[in-house]
Amino acid sequence: MAVTREVVIPNKEGLHFRPIMKFVDTAQRYQAGVTVHCEDRQADGRSPMEMLMLVATQGAKVKVVADGVDAEELVNALVSLVESGFGEM
């Protein structure tokens, strides 16, 4: 069962190295697969390269889509990570 949530990138740097590292780290702790969408681009939430290529800057709206047994928990964890500004704000 796929779980979808939208979230706005709040931090100044946007999805750059450090935020992405935290994001990927989190995604890897769950079994569900996760895809992240930004405008017409999409990325595997476990691939730092693809996440970088999303070029999601401050204020960008991203959609997090997870599918798998723990999809709900994964999406919650990712969304709260993003909303907290990746703990950097």
């Binding site: 190295f17 450090r18 992405i20 590292m21 990927v24 780290d25 595997d44 476990r46 691939s47 730092p48 390269m49 693809e50």
Partner: peptide
């Protein structure tokens, strides 16, 4: 942090 990123990049399953 730069190396931490390199580490993740190499471990990237898509790669």
């Amino acid at each position: 942090g730069i190396f931490a990123f390199h580490e993740q990049f190499i471990a990237d399953p898509r790669l």
